[in-house]
Amino acid sequence: MNIRHAKTFFLGALVLCFLVSLFANQINSYWLFISYDIGINIILAVSLNLINGYTGQFSLGHAGFMAVGAYTAAAITNQFGELNPYLSIAVFLGALLAGGLLAAVAGLLVGIPTLRLRGDYLAIVTLGFGEIIRVVFQNMQSVGGARGLSVMHGWTNFFWAFGFAAVTVYVVTALVHSTYGRGFIAVRDDEVAASAMGISTTKYKVTAFVVGAFFAGIAGGLYAHSKQFITPGGFNFMQSIAIVVMVILGGMGNTIGVIIAAILLTLLPEGLRAIADIEHIPGIVTAHPFVWVSDTRMIIYSLLLIILMLTRPQGLFSLRKSLSK
């Protein structure tokens, strides 16, 4: 991406999202919903990439921030009945932003106490924070507790999902590609040297957490209004790991790679499902020769993760030699 024209690209992307969304009713609804997942996963992965990839702070709690956004936005929109289109846009946008802001506050709360921690310690503590958030929602009867919460409005559409994906990509890219933003990478490369160069490592880390959490919250809101049903269990640390895997696969600190990875990993289960559904292959006698794939797809997924780490730990789409130290 040419950074010089980042803003032009961004505005172009928004217009494109809008144009495509005009034709959304031409798309088969099954694929339309998958496309929302793609947009949401791009937001999640790119925002996590700011924390994990660029700033080098390994967070395993992204699903927790997502949960905050999802529950906040859903709780707000559930207060409203049927609305006219313009009002619904305003309410939805407000609810998403509120979810993002509350998630950002959660990010601040996580970011500050974890400043002193590094590497795998930080990973486990953020995981712990994510789990605490989940347990809190499990105990909040006002939003359904463990039973989950129905979301009345299915307001998420192609424009919102990809529009916010474009916003996320723009914000992260614009931040990092500036003199200011090189500070994130400095913190990742060498914290001691960074602070010796006058960089407040604290500020950068907290900024990364807050910005990352904000977009995770937005993604959560979009997710809630796409699935129309959310449970605390849906935001457990498996979900966090799934986002981390997108970042790793794409290559830490490589936004384009991470976007590709988010798309591929969203499509992977669908692809495997399609393979499992193949009824007949010429030359092979058995019907449904790949039906075993549907049982083993998560096994394949975890095996692929291990093999990826053993052979290309820098990610599939990264030119860099290795992860940050």
Partner: peptide, 8 residues
């Protein structure tokens, strides 16, 4: 790097 091992 430690994180590679952690992810593995």
């Amino acid at each position: 790097p430690k994180l590679t091992v952690l992810i593995t």
